[in-house]
Design a protein around this nucleic acid. Structure first.
Length: 697
RNA sequence: GCCGGUGUAGCUCAGUCGGUUAGAGCAGGGGAAUCAUAAUCCCAAGGUCGUUGGUUCAAUUCCGACCGCCGGUACCA
């Protein structure tokens, strides 16, 4: 029986435009699908969009559209992205489609009939103006709603609850008996410890808005979006012939949604009657793409990225080519970990490995075919092989096998490294055998052997790359005189066998498949992708000092990353050079930008040391607010060995800075201004007393 | 705070189930070659394997502590 392979990406939440994180997940899924097809398996790749929920409803209102029209529009933007990236899903599911709605209701009933749903009450922090609940994390200091800046209140409402607690033991057993269910391991550890900490029942319906799937037989409620969304993987194939693909082998997720997929999802399925063999095989969590060693800020969405250069996948693909981008994403990032992302990185990888190693290999061999073999692939007789060829073939065979194994274990970066190594091996062989000398010495047979071997290796590499660079691989094969790959069920096209290149095939030399750009062209490309001054000439600065975020981030296309992530207090940064460079100091901002910073006079009420955190102090600061004094964590402990000195001090506080979590119970709701040098630190203050809460500007 | 992870060459990382000279790619240095996209190939250089205790004949590898960094600590969709 043909082996089946079913891979899914998360369905993307349509509250924003597609970005590089979405592209990353989808490219991975696409490459895996192509790989499995190449190996003769039946593969299916599902993606889609998640379109329900209060947030969507609001966004639609804000855009002056009906929710359905709104999601139609955004969903289309996602769908339209894939062709530009060479991504070819077999199905694209939308949670607003009838098949999904009906499916979710069907599974809801199953879960209900299993006795796992009951009416209870959900309590949370409610903002009257928003008509919605807030989590503690998103609240502003003083428990204010981030949108309306007014206090939230505790409120309870009737809701359907899912007996998640009942599944705690079965989930733990699942993780233990099937460690492959959650990968990589570090995620499993997290999840196991989370579940061991105890599970509470989960609220799975809402009654304060309507943009969702109605709860069967209870019209006042809509189904909580995660119950809705997770089932997409099933509803897309359920009740169709494709149901045979169930369960998925690989479900790709990003870090931020691991729990939903590894705890709630299997629990829902168990409740609906699925045994282990019918649960997804592996939930695989990949990392984020980062830039410049800076961590991403905590933004919603699959992946938050800061880069040197644009992060818009479409623009990148337009300029550099989809295949090059795909190659970079899979080659550069150690799958499962966070990885670097930068435009210069893409160009560098492509030039060194695709261009100079693979492309150039073909390019240096083809002229011989034209000159000495009438443009046809020379014939090789077994008796003309030498030890060199035997060694070469053995080496290639080993690499091909290892690369296949790497694909099978989702270590694609390794698979690609091995693939490039195949081309390196051939370059070495080329140098050793020196066909240009053979040509001069008129040893036509030997020359034919060498050229044929090099060409065959180019074919091998083209095939091995094809899941990642389908278009470029086809071009390589075309120049070799071959047609495009046509994966067929039960036919393994992975080049484990030597000799896929036919004798006498007429080669079709052409321009470089992976062109190298001359410096002016490259500079223009970089510029068009917003790379400015990629490597500033700041040489000798202490390498470890990453420093707080400085001025180089242009807000331009960066969506939500503009939230200041600077630590509440930053003087601890090891000895930032006192001399501020002109560039750092000179970024001009508009008055409006400055006005966004809410500076207030504050009065320190209490100050205490924090155990085990010898740089931090926990302060209570009065800003004259009705909600009472704020807690501010400040990294000034070293400057105030006697904390009592601080009490009563007049300070300047950044009052509208996003709260910063220093660990449980230690959330800083503001930041003090201070001047610091490596030797000392002093707080900004005023010569005369002012009322707490006085605006500073 | 608690839980987990991580710290190896200038950069990105691999690796050591404890044992003679710790590896790769990139960058930088030297050379060979000239078929090719000024591409290729070779050589050398470069690391007190975060710090500190301990176990051991032997630790970068095991254990403890500490420091730095990262992540998790649920009903946000």
């Amino acid at each position: 029986m043909t082996q089946r392979f079913y891979v899914t990406t998360p369905i993307y939440y349509v509250n924003g435009s597609p970005h590089i994180g979405h592209a990353y997940t989808s490219v991975v899924a696409d490459a895996l699908t192509r790989y499995h097809r190449l190996r003769g398996q039946r593969a299916r790749f599902l993606t889609g969009t998640d379109e329900h929920g209060q947030k969507i409803e609001r966004e639609a209102v804000k855009a002056g559209m009906a929710p359905q029209a709104f999601v139609d529009d955004v969903s289309q933007r996602f769908r339209g992205l894939w062709p530009k990236l060479g991504v070819q899903p077999d199905d694209f599911i939308r949670t607003t489609e009838a098949r999904h709605v009906a499916g979710v209701q069907k599974w809801w009933r199953k879960v209900r009939d299993a006795g796992d749903l009951y009416k209870g009450s959900y309590k949370g922090l409610y903002c009257v103006a928003c008509e919605g609940y807030k989590t503690e994390k998103e609240l502003l200091p003083g428990n204010l709603c981030p949108i309306h800046e007014r206090p939230v209140e505790e409120r309870a409402e009737e809701t359907w609850l899912f007996r998640l607690s009942k599944y705690q033991d079965r989930l733990l057993k699942l993780y233990e008996e099937h460690p492959e269910f959650v990968l990589p391991e570090t995620r499993r550890n997290e999840i196991v410890s989370f579940v061991q900490g105890g599970l509470e029942d989960l609220s799975v319906s809402r009654s304060n808005f309507t943009w969702g799937i109605p709860v069967p037989d209870d019209p006042g409620h809509v189904i909580y979006v995660w119950f809705d969304a997770l089932f997409n993987y099933l509803t897309a194939v359920d009740e169709t012939p494709e149901r045979a693909f169930w369960p998925p082998q690989i479900q790709l997720v990003a870090k931020d949604i691991v729990r939903f997929h590894t705890v709630y999802w299997p629990a829902f399925l168990m409740s609906a009657g699925f045994e282990r063999a019918q649960l997804p095989t592996t939930i695989w969590t990949h990392g984020y793409l980062l830039s410049g060693g800076r961590k991403t800020s905590k933004t919603p969405g699959l992946t938050a990225v800061k880069t040197s250069g644009t992060t818009d996948p479409v623009r990148i693909a337009d300029v550099l080519g989809a295949d090059v981008l795909r190659f970079y994403l899979l080659r550069e990032v150690s799958f499962g970990q966070d990885g670097e992302f930068s435009i210069p990185g893409i160009i560098g990888r492509a030039r060194a490995e695709l261009g100079e190693t693979v492309g150039n290999l073909l390019h240096r061999a083809l002229p011989f075919v034209g000159k000495y073999f009438d443009g046809r692939v020379p014939e090789v007789k077994d008796e003309s092989l030498t030890e060199t060829e035997r060694t070469l073939r053995a080496r290639v065979a080993t690499l091909v096998t290892e690369a296949g194994a790497a694909w099978d274990t989702l270590t694609m970066h390794r698979a690609l490294e091995l693939t490039i190594e195949v081309a390196r091996t051939a370059n070495r062989y080329f140098d050793e055998t020196a066909p240009w000398k053979l040509a001069k010495s008129d040893d036509r047979t030997r020359l034919g052997v060498v050229i044929a071997h090099v060409l065959e290796i180019v074919r091998v590499v083209a095939v091995m790359l094809s899941p990642v660079t389908p278009t470029k691989s086809e071009e390589l094969l075309h120049q070799l005189g071959l047609g495009a790959l046509t994966p067929t069920e039960d036919t393994d096209l992975w080049p484990t066998q030597w000799g896929g290149l036919l004798v006498n095939t007429v080669v079709r030399p052409g321009p470089p498949v992976f062109p190298k750009y001359d410096p002016p062209t490259e500079a223009a490309m970089l510029l068009s992708l917003d790379v400015r001054d990629a490597e500033p000439a700041t040489e000798k600065s202490p390498p470890k000092n990453k420093g707080p975020m400085s001025t180089d981030e242009k807000p331009a296309t960066e969506s939500p990353a503009a939230v200041p992530t600077t630590a509440a207090v930053a003087p601890a940064a090891p000895a930032a050079p006192a001399a501020v460079t002109a560039e750092e100091a000179s970024a001009i901002i508009a008055y409006d930008d400055f006005a966004k910073v809410d500076l207030r006079v504050g009065k320190v009420l209490t100050a205490e040391k924090i155990p085990r955190k010898d740089k931090l102090l926990k302060l209570s600061v009065d800003l004259g607010e009705a909600s009472g004094p704020r807690t501010i964590i400040a990294g000034i402990a070293l400057a105030f060995p006697v904390v009592e000195e601080l009490v009563g001090q007049q300070v300047v506080v950044v009052a509208n800075l996003a709260p910063r979590d220093f660990g449980k119970g230690l959330v800083s709701h503001g930041m003090l201004l201070a001047a610091s040098s490596p030797e000392s630190l002093s707080l900004a203050t005023f010569a005369k007393p002012y009322a707490a809460g006085t605006r500073v500007k």
